[in-house]
Each structure stands twice: as structure tokens, then as C-alpha cells.
Design a protein around this nucleic acid. Structure first.
Lengths: 197, 197, 197, 197
DNA sequence: AATGAATGAGGATTCATTCAT
DNA sequence: TATGAATGAATCCTCATTCAT
């Protein structure tokens, strides 16, 4: 078939990957409950039962997507932060990476924000652990900031992450870019730093 | 209406109210998709079919809950703001009222935050309109603030509302009260105001 | 039936009864596992989902059939025994009633013999209790017999009941009647009594 | 395959035997319908599809187990009977061997009792033939007994075999041994012989 | 001698909804 | 105001089996 290629494509896990990609896309578009195994199957061109060769259950499929989502967003964030030295610049880089991933780049990462652990009670704990593992990074970033004593770092983190995550609700492509949004958010917050002098 | 009925007060729609209260509670606890008409019916002690005497569909039930939710939170917010003169104090009062309602007081209001318009595509537009109508108030509150020029009021509002709404995801009873949370958020932001002097 | 009745048929539970009758028939013909809800539904002319209006699950349907089966066979046995005074005659009457019910008269009772409690693990205990409740009667019947000391009444009961129940495996209509079979079994056993003189 | 491999005996069909052993165990534990090809495969550490290299279908697997079961129980019975001369002692030896095999020793033999020919309609006739072939032996054993004229040998056989087979339903390890049970059954029956003098 | 990947049919069950009474 | 009874479609998932490799 392939003209003069000996092994045309690695072929290996490629159906599984397709399945995962499709599930991620549909979960992000419609949410977990509103996406059926039928929907996923027909989007990849298999029968619903065939999915179960690759994944033991819908919940397990979600966990796998979630894990991949956390892994992708964490990677991007770590890479972005690694390029900066100054704490506020690190935080900005992190927010930009977070928003870009979560609004634009990765269906997987979007699922982590859109689908709540409670949506799949049987795997709730595992999903929550994955999320927490990622959010830890923001603890460190906030801890590194030079801040006036009266600013509660705990709530600074929750304020920022909440605002970033919630942006998924109102974000529409074509308006400000994720990068711009992140920067604007930090500009608003930056008053804090400015005032501490 | 009933011509010579002795039943003094019409006490109108007593069952309908029960139904709404219950639907609001279940939608907030489990989300829209994870709550079935059966669940609602059995919680009020009716048969599933009987709900349809009061509401045309599950979507319609949601819209009614949503409308009531918006109305309740708006009332509380308006009342809270009315007691304050100073713009920052008004904003603080608004945030406290919002969080208290959305985390504690009203199942109805919690549904407005927890259930996304996209969860019920057929009534998406109506739900979104109801939400927007409420969020308008924050535009006015932010507009009244005395702020440095470089602070983008649009994003200040999104930052704040996002953080407030997202708190539903991590809030647990027994920790800081909604009032405390709102105050901490504003303290963080307050750097902005402080520094502008 | 009732010639000039105004309410022609009580109508009440009549679909539920049909369902039960049909389930009993199919469970006895094909066993529990080999009978699907689809099979039952289509045999009574409903959709599979409609069964769930009447019964919560397939297991629950089985329990109801079982209960009815035990009740029917117990009634017949009690009536048969009541007509006799002499212990061996009571036992014979019981065996005849048992076999007639279990081979011929009642689909319900046949299910009690054919479907083992282990076939429905989730309701195993309830099924076993129903069976035991019936088999108790044979304890009393055997206890009343005048027997030589060396005959173990426990095993006499197990021998007899085992033989009676297993006859479901080889019984074919057209051969000896259940009454005849029961009598032959007891004739075989009767040596015991004869010899004790 | 391996040219100069030292593996001495071909040790033929080593996996096939494993498969049979496992199928026998699972069929006896859970019954035919409740055991899936997946269950069998995963218990021997293969994939479900791989079973089909060894057996054409699940039914065929059952037939093979059944055949082996009949063969094993027949062998044990024949050996036990061969050691005795007196007809009643032969019958006792047969019953003991039957019960020991069917309750304790052989998964294969237990399948012959537990799984009814009707459970696999497509091979029903073959299964029934295998069973019958074994039960024939009891005809001869009963024929050899010295019995009063009024004892029907046909029903003596059915009584005894029914009781023995049904004991699988109530037998629990830890109570009386299969040997004891068989002896008790025969003691009960022995009245027959005793009285004929 | 077995795997990897799938099929197609069917499993029990749940859903929102309808409608005569 | 509701109920009783059902519908029809969809839910997730499991089944025995196939077949190219």
C-alpha cells in the first residue's frame, strides 16, 4: 500500500489516541453527562461497545483524559515559569500559560476545568487529587511574591485561579486573547505590589 | 376564582412552590443532568408525571428556578448596596451579599452559578439573559469606583465575579464564612485603591 | 364473566399479574439467566422499559415470583395434608401435592425448584429463606413418622425432597403422572416401615 | 520449533488442559450462563479470542468439560464397584464414589450435575446422551439387587440418583462427608432389604 | 499458539414525557 | 390536581465471536 515505505506508520496505539482526543473534545464541548459513549464512538467511527476494548468504563475514560489534561497544562506552565526569574513575572507567565491552555490549546486541559470531580462520583477522589496536584504550583508561585503583610496569600491564589478558571464561562474566541486576559487580570492585581512601596 | 368556596385564602400553588424548592435543592446538589424528574417527584411525594401539571418540561422547571434565583440574589444585593454610600463599601457589601447567597442562603441562587446555560441548550439563551441581567449590577458598582487609569474596569469585574463564582467549587461549610471570604478577596484587591493615593 | 355487571372487570392490577405469570412461565422454561427482560416484555406485549413501572428490577421480579411460588405450593401441600390423619398418609399426600405442583400445576412453584438462589446473588438470601420456609413442613412430616431408631430422619427428608425436586430434570409429560411418581417413591421407601414390625 | 531444544516430551496441549480445568472450575462455581469467555480467558491469562484456537465455541468447551466429567466419574465409580461382590455393597460403593466425585473431587464431574443440558440448547442432545451413558450404570446396579416384588427398580434408581444429585444444592463443606451422606441415604433405604426377609 | 482490535447483537436499566382517567 | 400506566428512545456496558497479523 504505502509505496516504498516499509513501516508506513507506527500504527501502534493510534485508535486509542483517537478515542482519547475525541472524548476530550466532546467532554469539553458538552460536558461529561451530556456526552454519551455513543457520541464518542460515532465521532471516531466505531461501535459503542468497541470503546470498551480500550477503556473499562466511561469514568475511566474521563480519568485518563483528566490525567492527560493535568499533565499537559502542568508541562506548559512549568516551561513558561522556567523562563522567568522575577516572582511576578513567573506568576504572569504561569497565568498566561494556564489561560492559553485552558481556553485555547488543549481540549484535555479544558476538561480539567469544565468537568467537576462531582460529575463522576465513583472517581471523584481521583479527579480531585489530579486537580489539586496541579494547583499546588500556584501555592509556590504566590509564596514567592513580595507582598504587604495584610495580603492573604491563600486568598490571592483562590482569587486568581477562580478568575482564570471561570473565564471559560464567558470567553469567546475573537475577543481578547488568553494572553491579554491574563495580563489584564494581573494588571488589576498589580496595584498590590505598586502600593507596597 | 372559586365562586362560593369557603377556603379563605387561595394560598395559591402550594404544591408548585414545593416542587420549585425541591428542584432548586436537587439541581444545586447534583447538577442539572444528574437530577431526574423522578428524583424531584419522589422528593416531593408525587409521581413523575404529575410534575407536568405544574411545569411543561424539565427545561422549563430549570428556567423558573433560574429566574427565581436571579431575583433572590438581586434583591439581597440591592438591599445590601442600598445601605452603603461609599463605592468601595458598596462593592464590598455586594460581594458579601453575593457570596452569602450563592454559598449558603439560597438553593435557587446557587443553581444560577452551578448550572451553566449550556447544560440546557434549548433554553440556553434565556438562562444566559437572566444571568447577564444580574451581572449588570456589577458593571455599575465597578464604574463608580475611583481607580487609576491603568486598571481595566471590565477585567476588574470579571476577575471579581469569576473568583466569587468559582468559590462554589472549593467552598466547604465550617471554614471561613462567605462574609470573610468576600472581605479577604477585596483586601487583596484593595491594594489597587491604596496605592492610587 | 359476571353477566350484567356494570364494572366489567376489576381491571386493577391486571397488567402486573400478566407480567408475573409470564415471567414465571419463562423462568421455568428457560431458567433465570436465559430469560431476558426483553423476552418477558415482548411476551406480554409491552416495551422492556415498561416492566420497570411494575417491578424495580429483574431480581425483584424473581423474588416476587418465588414468593408466590412458595405460597402456592405451601397452600396445596397444607390442604392435602389437612385431609389425612395417619403420618405416612400425610407424607404421601404432601409428596403428591409437591410433585403435582412442581411438575404440572404451577409455573411459579416450578421456578422455586428450577432457579437456585445462587442464580441471583443480590437476592440470594431472600430466595433461600423462602425455600427454607417451605421445606420446614417436611421436617414436621418426617418427625411424625414412626420409624426404627437407626433411620436418620434428617437424611430421610433430604433423600425424599432431593428425589422429588430432581424429578423436574427427567420428568416428561405423557409418562407416569406426578401422583404415580410420588407413590412409587414412597413405596420404595415403605420397606422401612414394613420391616420395623 | 526450537531445533535442538532439550525439552524432552512434547507435553502436548498444555494450554488446552489449563483452559479445560479453568472452565470446569468456573462452570461449577457459577454455572454456565454466569461464566463468560472473558472470565475463563482472564483466569488462565489469555485473551478471550485466544480460546478459539483451542475450542470452536463456548458450547463446545462445555461439551468437552462434560465428556471429561462423565469419564472421570464413571472411572471412579467403576473402580469402586469392582472391589465389591455383594450387590448392596456394590451400590453403596457406587453411591459413595458418585457423591465424593460430585461434591468434592472433580470440578468436571460437578459440572455434569450442575449444568443442565437445556442450558446450552444447541448441544442439548449431546449433553443429555453423555449423562445418560453414565446413569446407565445405576440401572445395572439396581437390577442386581435382591428386592421384594413390589419395589419398582426404575423408581428406586430415580429416587437414589435424584437424592444424590440434589445434594449438590444443600451440601456444605465442613458438615457430614460425602461418604457419610451416601451411607445415611442407603441406611434409610435399607429398610427395604431388611424387611424382605 | 496467541494477540490486538473490533463487531453486532443484546444485556438491564433510566430518561423525559404523554395521556386517559 | 394528580395518578396509573405506559412509551420510545437512550443510557452504560457485556456478550460470544471473528480475523488479520
Amino acid at each position: 500500500m504505502a509505496a516504498h515505505s516499509t513501516t508506513p506508520a507506527p500504527r501502534q496505539d493510534n485508535r486509542r489516541q483517537q478515542l482519547l482526543d475525541t472524548a476530550a473534545r466532546l467532554f469539553r464541548q458538552h460536558g461529561y453527562h451530556a456526552t454519551s459513549m455513543r457520541d464518542i464512538a460515532s465521532a471516531v467511527g466505531m461501535l459503542p461497545g468497541s470503546i470498551y476494548y480500550h477503556f473499562a468504563s466511561k469514568d475511566e475514560l474521563l480519568v485518563t483524559v483528566y490525567r492527560e489534561g493535568v499533565s499537559r497544562i502542568a508541562e506548559r506552565l512549568d516551561a513558561a515559569v522556567a523562563g522567568k526569574k522575577e516572582p511576578w513575572q513567573q506568576l504572569e507567565a504561569a497565568c498566561i500559560a494556564h489561560l492559553q491552555t485552558v481556553l485555547d490549546h488543549s481540549d484535555y486541559a479544558q476538561v480539567v476545568i469544565r468537568v467537576l470531580p462531582d460529575d463522576a462520583p465513583a472517581v471523584r477522589v481521583r479527579l480531585a487529587a489530579l486537580r489539586d496536584q496541579y494547583e499546588e504550583r500556584f501555592k509556590d508561585l504566590v509564596a514567592a511574591l513580595d507582598l504587604p503583610a495584610y495580603v492573604d496569600r491563600h486568598y490571592l491564589r483562590l482569587l486568581l485561579l477562580g478568575a482564570l478558571n471561570w473565564s471559560q464561562v464567558w470567553y469567546r474566541r475573537g475577543g481578547d486573547s488568553p494572553r491579554t486576559i491574563a495580563k489584564r487580570f494581573l494588571q488589576v492585581l498589580h496595584g498590590i505590589q505598586a502600593q507596597q512601596r
